[in-house]
Amino acid sequence: MGLIRLEGVHFRYPRAPVLDDLSLDVRAGAVTVLVGASGSGKSTVLRLIAGFEPPARGRVVIGEETVSRDGRVLIPPEARGVSLVFQDLALWPHLTARETLELVLSREVPREERRRRTEEALAAVGLEGHAEARPASLSGGERQRVALARAIVTRPRILLMDEPLANLDPPLRRALIEEIRQLQRRLTLTILYVTHNHEETFGLGDHAAVLRAGRVEQVGPPRELYERPRSAFVASFLGRCALVPARARDGGLESALGALPLPRPDPAGRSELLAVVRPEDVVVGDDGPLSGKVERAMCLGSAFEVELAGPGWRLWALAPAEPVPGSVLRFAIRRVVTVPASDP
């Protein structure tokens, strides 16, 4: 059973429903990444867990305690043992890093203990030298670390993170992903991390939950979701892929591309499927059994992503050299997975 449970949760803003009968378990001591398109309800899930909003229907449980239920906040935010790193960090501009951390520590914590824990938290995020700095005088990465220190200094049961690295450049983001990961392991934190960035999803998540229109579409380890998506939405949300209509027959797949290997029978016995073909599973080479016309090619740095098309299909492949648009490229498909042709 998870440390956080959302059970049959409904929530709507005045103009639109956001969450629609959403249920989710967040495991203790692990990083669960919540991914989904903009407007799918990811940040709303965090706000419900933090206690800023109650669910219109359903309940939110932390540990053994129901903290919100059917339009009512039963346990206020400050009593939930939850921290949140906001997307825009929400650092208090009038306070230094030290003052910020000391402020969030309860007044019941003795002064000396408060000081010690502040120093520890600053050290944990590598900010010992910036204790007396206000946000305006810190760099983007340093502010991020102050926000992280503020979130962990209270030793929360749960750390919620709302796209905290969204505004950072790729190298800094990569470095901070690693730091968050190490911090989580060292402190055995339970983290619920909202993002729509693939690097953060796969780099951080022990588990991932894909949200679509206010419902959880699939939950599981990120790699498993990538390799065995349950729907076309999950398959295409977690990485570039082609969805080729296919029919299961005699233990194989018939498609516009020709016969393809069927990895495993559809659990529901459906025959109308979509073959998910990822660029890394398309092997470009002169000895390939298939061929397609090069529509366009985009340089990714280390390789070229090539869009290939044929009668009734279109897919992407990775090629080491830039092909000429309009030319024909031979290729083989190493592996496909299937998802239902229509939404379950």
């Binding site: 933090a50 935010p77 906001f86 208090w92």
Partner: peptide
């Protein structure tokens, strides 16, 4: 005031 500045504080006190 950016509401998140208050929300960040509400997680710790009343």
């Amino acid at each position: 005031i950016d509401p998140t500045l208050e929300e960040a504080a509400r997680l710790s006190f009343r």
